[in-house]
């Protein structure tokens, strides 16, 4: 088998639980540090984004209606599938320029991060919900609920832990999302789609696109059917544009410092709360 030609993988985007090429048919070349081409990456268009939002919207009712316990099981299952691909993730992070040790640490932390948010699925409502004292014959209580479809611009650095930190807390509460992968380093994100495809996560809950921020930030932030935007990055122009576009339907915008995603402190239940809204119920009671 000395003369065997290696079979290279075609990386695709992930919409509605299916691996697809961009409808635009465009792609860009991904190169390693020494300038050799590693792969062709889909250059998604705004129509791909539109399709992804439709699939996220369709998936929302089913995903948010699952029991919290079941969502927790599915996030745990995703972590299990990641564990089995540790070696591949490590190799891909090393292509981004990480040392083997740093890459291995990041993969392990990413898996632990998923487990962490799996645990929060059935706890955030207990911890952040409340029973409120009121001056009438009502039982008054407040519970956080998912906002709907969230568009996520993933961080450019620490791509794997960054991706997991960006998505896991969003879906933990029952939201669905569309993610724009790092433009420079999309490989580990694309391998993550294979984790999604082989875990029990319903199609459409996480949709992942690759492409240029310059083209996609606009639709990611002005689509009327997106309920919240999560931006991981430090570019002040981009931040401003997202906030302006979000004003169209007064959707929520959360901006995260891209360097902090890898810190242990970045993992906290307030990330789950960032994409929930509080529903308060007044329930009449007798004497």
């Amino acid at each position: 088998m000395q003369n065997r030609i290696p079979v290279l993988k075609t990386y695709k985007i992930y919409i509605a639980g299916k691996f697809e090429r961009s409808e635009s048919g465009r792609y860009y070349a991904l190169k390693d540090k020494s300038g050799n081409q590693i792969a062709n990456i889909c250059l998604s268009s705004r129509k791909d984004f539109r399709n992804a939002v439709v699939s996220a919207r369709n998936a929302f009712a089913g995903w948010s209606a699952k029991t919290a316990y079941n969502r927790s099981q599915i996030l745990y299952r995703m972590a299990e599938m990641m564990e089995g691909r540790s070696a591949q993730f490590t190799d891909e992070l090393m292509l981004e320029g990480l040392t083997r040790k740093a890459a291995e640490t990041q993969v392990a932390e990413s898996i632990d991060c998923l487990i962490y948010y799996a645990g929060w699925c059935d706890k955030y409502q207990q911890v952040f919900g409340s029973v409120n004292p009121v001056a009438s014959s009502h039982f008054n209580f407040s519970v956080p609920e998912p906002v709907g479809v969230v568009s996520i611009i993933a961080p450019e650095m620490n791509t794997l832990i960054g991706l997991v930190t960006a998505t896991a807390p969003v879906i933990a509460s029952g939201n669905t999302c569309v993610v724009l992968a790092s433009q420079e380093n999309p490989l580990s994100t694309l391998t993550f789609t294979e984790v999604l495809g082989t875990s029990d996560l319903p199609g459409g809950v996480i949709n992942i696109l690759t492409g240029k921020k310059g083209e996609l930030l606009e639709p990611f932030s002005n689509h009327m059917d997106v309920n919240a935007v999560a931006y991981h990055g430090d570019d002040s122009e981009e931040r401003k544009m997202i906030q302006q576009n979000a004003a169209l339907n007064v959707r929520r915008v959360k901006i995260y410092d891209s360097k902090k995603v890898s810190l242990v402190k970045a993992q906290n239940p307030y990330r789950v709360m960032d994409f929930t809204e509080i529903k308060t119920t007044w329930h009449p009671i007798g004497e």
């Binding site: 939002v53 002005n222 689509h223 009327m224 059917d225 339907n249």
Partner: peptide
């Protein structure tokens, strides 16, 4: 020029 939502 903006994708719309059934909500509206």
């Amino acid at each position: 020029g903006v994708y719309q939502s059934g909500d509206y």
